[in-house]
Design a protein around this nucleic acid. Structure first.
Lengths: 137, 137
DNA sequence: AATATCCCTACTAAGAAAGTAGGATTGTAG
DNA sequence: CTACAATCCTACTTTCTTAGTAGGGATATT
């Protein structure tokens, strides 16, 4: 059960944007270079973040990306759902009807607890929290 | 970040074994039929559980599998690590040296927290807990 | 008009997941 | 002692996902 590079790269990209002044834009090439990510791949990731409304883009020369909201209001859970999909590790957690035994299955409750535990962590962490950590060093 | 069928099937198989008398053995075919799992696939899963010492096997006619310890002493975390691998969703959590930026990276701490949260749930749940849930209905 | 940026789509190579398949080995019951 | 039912072992296959690569189109600035 590994986290994809999309989610990890995306998190670092958001922190990178949050470190810039909110009114400035940062181009993909610069983020990619600082974060050691393939620029073309990061482009796709940023496109998804934009579609989800987490960042906004400015096209043309001197264009780039910026957070669309204050870093403190963007949670890692949002990022996770955009780039990694549902937090639930088993389908029946979100959709009991997907398994005919959902209402009797003793394992399902554990998968539900797993989701809740994960979600707690992801919801409680904002991009600003990550920035604060970075600044503490 | 989905849980594999191996882990899910394995969990159900252990519960199935726990429902039998401890001194009895249950053959793969029976478990597979009750749990709606491909018998040949379940064979491979049981082999892994045996190699990890969670179950013991008896060969030959009227052979089969049984839990090697009381159900209350087998945690889902053990099962998870055998069939799903490390609980950490990112490599640097268990092995900081795998990434040169581990000691500065602000995202790592969140991945660590994710692991801890998951681990809490998995450690606190034993096969016996699952059996108890099943019996409550 | 040149250029630097985002935007969009398609392609690919490698690996993992989820089984399928076929038989070898072993212990027991008749 | 023989047939059989079970585990054991290894290889194969098919499908899906991941992690990119590639090439160009649209657009705004200088």
């Amino acid at each position: 059960m590994r986290l994809s590079t999309k989610a990890r790269y995306g998190a670092r990209a958001l922190v990178d944007l949050a470190l810039a002044r909110p009114e400035d834009t940062t181009c993909v090439r610069d983020i990619a270079e600082r974060q050691c990510i393939s620029p073309k791949y990061l482009e796709q990731i940023m496109a998804r973040l934009k579609a989800a409304g987490l960042v906004k883009a400015l096209r043309g020369r001197h264009g780039g990306y910026a957070l669309s909201r204050p870093a403190a209001s963007i949670t890692i859970k949002e990022l996770f759902e955009v780039l990694e999909g549902p937090v639930a590790a088993v389908e029946c957690v979100d959709d009991p009807a997907s398994c005919p035994m959902s209402d009797v299955c003793p394992t399902r409750e554990t998968w539900v607890q797993m989701k809740q535990a994960l979600q707690n962590v992801l919801e409680q962490t904002s991009v600003q929290d990550l920035v604060d950590r970075e600044n503490q060093r």
